[in-house]
Amino acid sequence: MRRRPLVAAAALGLVAPAVARAQRRPRILMMLFRGWEEACDGFRDYFAARRLDVELVVSNAEEDLSRVPAMVRQAQAMRPDLVYLWGTTLTMAALGPWDAHDPARHLNGMPVVFNIVTDPVRNRVVRSRAAPGRPVTGTEYIAPVAVQLRAMESYRPFQRAAALFNPRERNSIVTLEEMAEQLATRGAVLHSLPVPLADGRPQPDAIPGLVTAAREAGAEWLYIPPDTFLNEHRAVLTAAALQEGLPSFAASERFVAFADGLAGLVSRYYSVGAFTGFKAEQILFGGVSPAAIPVETLSRFSYLVRMETARRLRAYPPVELLRIAEAV
């Protein structure tokens, strides 16, 4: 009889932390660069769909990097349960390189997830995808190069491809180097055509001429890397490709969705946001350290096909691809 209170007390002791955790809503500080968009929707909706109660606090840099130090100080003062970072630039500024972390200037002492970041390894946000090397994890949104290659081949097999790029953008150079390597192992070739610079700035006027040169060199595909300069001039680029009868394939959505690009294998920001939410859930509710959660891309991407371009090029997608593709 006398034992019972003891047992009850022990049980309470075990249960107590869990109860406490359930009662307190985890607070997530969302540090945004360009304001709230679809990736943030996906992140928020992930918790809503699973009825996970979280408190979201938003702080926006409004595309101004100079605001970042203040935002970091605010975060350090607030000490949220998790920080959400949007975009490559903001992420690099707020976290610093994994091997040159400065506690005075960079976020420290709290778990971080990042979203919409290109190549976090080369950008030294994490040490490696499998083992981030710091309490930071997140998602990438560009499909791996090998997957993009397979997607191009499933539309139309090829031996020669060409790509324009801005020589000032490290991202594009890295992607094209990797693609050239992979193509070489399959006995195919990639012509990389840098957009000429004037006063250190790439010249948009040169784009149509480069596309013509690519076609004359025998290219069967025009590959469009995730390049900010090209994105700005996507209409000129894709129209030139269409003019030359050259099918174009893009690694991000806008070239197909909002220009004349033929096809693209892209991540939907919404899905990437939800995936980031999944990683946040593991940290907040699963008790997993961010350092133990790999950085990943989606396992399934959206295959966009612009039917009007296909019709004009008379390059219709195979039926097999139409099963999974999304026509725009």
Binding site: M307, R311, Y316, P318, V319, L322, R323, A327
Partner: peptide, 25 residues
């Protein structure tokens, strides 16, 4: 279903691509 979808997207029946592969799959 995907064949009909292709037709619906305006691909002419004679220009359906990769039907053999699709059917084999």
């Amino acid at each position: 279903n995907p064949l009909e979808r292709a037709l619906g997207l305006g691909i002419p029946f004679d220009e359906l691509v990769g039907t053999s592969e699709y059917l084999a799959d």
